[in-house]
Amino acid sequence: MTTEAMGIRWARKDLLGLRELSAEEITFILDTADAFKQVGTREIKKVPALRGKTLVNFFIEPSTRTRTSFELAAFRLSADVINISATTSSLTKGESLKDTARNLEALHADILVLRHGSAGAAQFLAERLRTSVINAGDGAHEHPTQALLDLYTIREKRQRIAGLHVAIIGDILFSRVARSNIFGLLKLGARVTLVGPSTLVPREFEKLGVQISHRIDDVLPEVDVVNLLRIQHERQRKEYFPGIGEYTRLFGLTKERARLLKPECLIMHPGPINRGVEIDSQVADGLQSVILDQVTNGLAVRMAVLYLCGGIAT
């Protein structure tokens, strides 16, 4: 049954995470993204959906691809965009997050896209501001648009999500991408196995309803999708794993390991990839890789999210 036939409508001003969304709401966003993906094929790749609206990209943590993806999505929707990054913001001068945000609101910003190092930062602002708040990553908590574009890519390539078996491999403990993916995949009926060293994939995750494995070679032949996460050098202290070479030997998707995969298994990665660490170059560029489709779909998904959250009355 389609979301249209069910008569579902969108009524949220914020996108904070996938945990609080229903399966129907997630599907609604993916269906909306279908329509926006098609805009990219038009002669004029721009629609007036958010004309006159102002979007503030407020990135306290560094990010290029997520920020530019939101920026291009906003341009395609005819919104005006300003970018504020950690180094240019007054946060470095001691202003509180709330004061900075209230200043942005005083400028009549309609949509705030927030990347922040603390879990719950987006929710904190969403509860205090009339502005639509889109979480572009808050600490190790959630990164909903990344998970939505992953779900969109799986659905596009495999025509469904329910019943598929997805392995998320790597740095789960610190990964907001993993958390959002777990919530979204389980809600849409997929089976999820987390793979990595026990220091990065602790047993507590089983409470979420996923399986855990520390042996990648057992998992690879079983799955329909592998989602490789970047090893986040910048977040990790030394004790989590012995070394990069050791990680690659035990958990890297080398070209030898890739032969264990089913031929139709999709290989995904949220980027930026560390070639030769979590994935071999030939595998990243191979036929099963949908890494660049993820980038294209990210634009469509973010257009859908901005249109939905930014387009309703607040």
Partner: peptide, 12 residues
């Protein structure tokens, strides 16, 4: 834009 409390599905 911005005047409706709920949005219906957009189709391609």
């Amino acid at each position: 834009v911005g005047t409706r409390a709920e949005l219906p599905i957009v189709r391609a």
